Computed example of a mutant assay.
Amino acid sequence: MKRKWLENPGGGISRIEELTPEEQVRSEASTAVKETGTKAEKPQDIQKTDKASGEKKKSASDKKRKAGNSKKQLAENGETLLDVSKGDIRITLNGATGGGLTENESSLNPKGYWIIGKTSDYNIEVKKDVTTSITMENVKVTSGKSSARLDSVNVSHANVVLTVLGKNELICKTASPQEGSIPGTGCALAKDGMDGSLAIQCSKSNKIGHKCDDQCGTLIVKGNSEIMHAGALGSTRRNILDTYDSGFANLTIYGGNLEVAGGAHCPGIGSACVSEKNGGGYTKNIVIAGGEY
Score class of each variant (00 low, 15 high):
S205I: 08
P110W: 01
E41T: 12
K127H: 08
D242S: 15
I288M: 10
Y244T: 15
G184W: 13
S59I: 14
L81T: 00
G144W: 08
N109T: 02
E137M: 04
C172R: 01
E18V: 08
I46S: 11
A261T: 15
V141D: 01
E292H: 13
K167E: 14
E23A: 13
K222T: 15
Q24F: 05
T218W: 07
Y282T: 15
V164Q: 01
T119S: 10
K51Q: 12
Y122I: 00
M136R: 00
V126H: 00
R237A: 07
R238F: 05
S27C: 03
A249N: 15
T131Q: 12
G262N: 13
L233D: 09
V161T: 09
Q215W: 03
C266S: 10
D62I: 06
T92G: 08
L165F: 15
S246I: 03
D213Q: 05
K2C: 03
V25F: 01
N69Q: 10
G87R: 10
T102A: 13
K64M: 08
A40K: 10
G95W: 03
S176F: 09
I134S: 03
K211S: 12
G117E: 02
S14T: 14
K191F: 04
C212D: 15
N69Y: 00
K118E: 15
G256W: 10
S59P: 12
N154L: 00
T283W: 02
E105G: 02
M136E: 01
H210A: 04
K277Y: 13
A190D: 01
H157G: 04
N224E: 14
R65K: 09
D214V: 10
I13D: 04
Y282F: 15
G290Q: 12
P267W: 05
G184P: 05
A230M: 15
C212K: 06
K58D: 15
S235E: 03
S27E: 14
S146L: 01
K284H: 01
T135K: 03
R15M: 08
D121L: 14
V33D: 12
P9R: 04
T236F: 09
A232Q: 06
G186F: 09
G100M: 07
T135I: 11
K277H: 04
G255M: 11
I134H: 03
T36M: 05
R149F: 15
K4W: 09
K191N: 09
E41P: 06
I288A: 06
I220K: 09
K118I: 02
L81F: 00
T236R: 12
I253T: 05
G196K: 08
G223F: 07
D121C: 03
K167N: 13
S53F: 06
L241P: 02
D62N: 11
E7P: 11
T185C: 15
K284L: 03
H210T: 05
L241V: 03
T20N: 04
G54A: 03
S147G: 13
E259G: 04
N123K: 10
I288Q: 11
P110D: 02
N77I: 06
N94D: 12
G98R: 11
E105R: 00
K211A: 09
K2F: 10
T135E: 08
G247T: 01
T92W: 00
T135A: 09
I13E: 01
C266H: 06
